[in-house]
Design a protein around this nucleic acid. Structure first.
Lengths: 336, 336
DNA sequence: CCCACTTACGCAAGCGCTTGCGAAAACTTG
DNA sequence: CAAGTTTTCGCAAGCGCTTGCGTAAGTGGG
């Protein structure tokens, strides 16, 4: 059996409460006593039982991280940074892979509801669950949304300005001389995808290019989906000369389809992909991509959550970060 | 405040103990009473407080997953499958990214020691911490090692037979007509890396090729390391005509270095990489790789752990799975 | 040197649940 | 129908910790 507070108390000849206070560095215990207690605790390699502590203090030092897609390198990267931040603040991360399924999200939500975690961070994901979230939230839980839009600005969120990102991408392509730019975005039931379309349309409008709805294609986020997207799009009446793809795996699939079709990038089609990760940099040609400040996204959201946990609701806010366009070979017109 | 067992008990007009038994489907409560209790619980959306439950029952339904490298797609894939298995058995996963640092591993080990988790799965990682592990283990914790070798066969483990994998790879290369095969493996302080060398040497010996120690290179696991490995190796006296690289990112870096040097794969150098993932399949040329049965690895280890948790030590065992060689362009000699 | 004030510590309740035990009630069976 | 057996359920202790409150000891000022 593990050594307990009581044991330490007995050894030190003091009350449990004193030991507890000493260990938690609270006031109300003399310097000398504290030192003695700490010494004994260390000697016996005492580990507080976090469950008991959580039960008594209503604080678990654990947060749930809801991951909409584990296949996305960006998401993984965010988790990595979250883990680092959490570790430095002595928090534990519970991984909740929801796979964009409302069902799974709901199941994991009970972690929040049963007070097993102090808060939760949602990375990406559809709109769907928002009302559920809200229900959990009202039972005074701390929640932060990362790159996830809800109907109302109810939650503390940190978002990437996808609209401006896509806007930049379109502008860049136009400048390079591309005229018929296709947009391949993620599922429609995700509000952030709508935003992307907004940025796309703004840029077109400003450049007085005509908007063609055949060139806007939305599909799920996977390699196959990207592959098929290309096949579908080139079937349409107007053949694009450039693609903007807003999901990581989709981008890869798209490029593969292009190459498989015997076309060349950027000669036949320019491609602007998404995510500055190893994938987009090793594929040939290296892809121009929209890149999010992932580390910042992670850090911001974690500390927002921390603030929510500690200070309560008053500190709710929304932060928008800008993506940047990393220009590589796939969108540089060679012969003009 | 959350609704509690006591509340349900009051509403149902029974004792807390009865509610507890009903909810946990234990015997000792009449069918009728049970139904009534369940109904009330559902109506009020009752969620048991897992902390209290854990404290009382000494069981948390959480396991820690120690991840030695979060950059490795294979590791992530394993985690993904673990998460799925855990979810199906109503377990939660706590993510512990150790980055191969003993310090971090030690810190996270206290999760085990403080009874916050029922067990732990270690994915990869160095030997270093084994004595620590053992210490934690002796305090009756359940531990399963995945692709991690300890000095003694003390822990329940599920391993990939790297030795045979590399053996296969070498044989394949020889068959293709390659004669001077270099091996780029991971850090030496990792026992599984030694195993790889074993397989390599066995295959060479059997084929009566001379072993050249300049062709065995061990380095850390990263893109840069792979890049540099190539540069170092071609500086040596004997220039290889093929590379076997045993780490995912290392493999990518190696290929990049080869291409950057103006060489062609497989004409100048054959490459056998590691990990059947998106990376190795999109790089050009597509890489012949050693592939582990990741899903199986994950599932096996999870259920081993479950057994350990439920039945105790007696069921300790070691399972070895075979990797397979996926042959693609990078190791097919074009002109012979 | 006494009173007010601060500081150090112990007491005990309580967090929400599980579980061993015993009593009462409901069944058996000869 | 009595005695034994089984089932159903409540009581209460306890998991290991935190925390409000009360008391004893220590401090300083008049």
């Amino acid at each position: 059996m593990q050594i307990t507070l009581k044991d330490i108390a007995r050894m030190a000849g003091v009350a449990e409460s004193t030991v507890s206070r000493a260990l938690n560095d609270k006031k109300g215990v003399g310097e000398e006593t504290k030192l003695k207690i700490l010494k004994i605790a260390k000697e016996h390699n005492y580990r507080p039982n976090q469950l008991a502590r959580g039960l008594a203090a209503k604080k678990t030092n654990m947060i749930a991280v809801f991951l909409s897609e584990m296949d996305s390198p960006s998401n993984i990267e965010i988790v990595k940074h979250l883990e680092a931040a959490a570790e430095s603040e002595d928090y534990q991360i519970i991984l909740c892979n929801t796979n964009n399924q409302e069902e799974k999200e709901k199941r994991y939500l009970s972690l929040l509801e049963s007070n097993q975690v102090d808060g939760a961070i949602f990375i990406g994901g559809k709109l769907v669950g928002s009302h559920l979230l809200r229900a959990s939230f009202s039972s005074d839980n701390s929640i932060v949304l990362v790159n996830r839009l809800a109907e109302e600005n109810f939650f503390t969120s940190v978002l990437t300005d996808y609209s401006s990102g896509i806007y930049q991408a379109v502008k860049h392509l136009i400048k390079q001389g591309y005229q018929k730019i296709a947009l391949v975005s993620g599922p429609k039931d995700n509000l952030v995808e709508e935003e992307k379309t907004t940025g796309y349309m703004e840029a077109l409008e400003e450049s007085e290019l005509k908007l063609n709805h055949d060139l806007i294609y939305s599909t799920e986020s996977s390699r196959e989906a990207g592959y098929n997207a290309f096949l579908k799009i080139i079937e349409s009446e107007v053949i694009p000369d450039a693609f903007i793809s807003t999901k990581e795996l989709t981008t890869i699939g798209l490029v593969e389809a292009i190459k498989m079709g015997g076309y060349f990038i950027p000669d036949d089609f320019a491609v602007v992909g998404y995510g500055d990760n190893i994938l987009t940099s090793i594929i040939e040609p290296p892809l121009t991509v929209l890149s999010e400040p992932l580390a910042e996204l992670a850090k911001k959201s974690f500390y927002f959550l921390l603030k929510l946990i500690n200070d309560g609701l008053d500190s709710q806010k929304i932060e928008v970060l800008n993506p940047s366009l990393i220009i590589r070979d796939s969108s540089i017109k060679k012969y003009n």
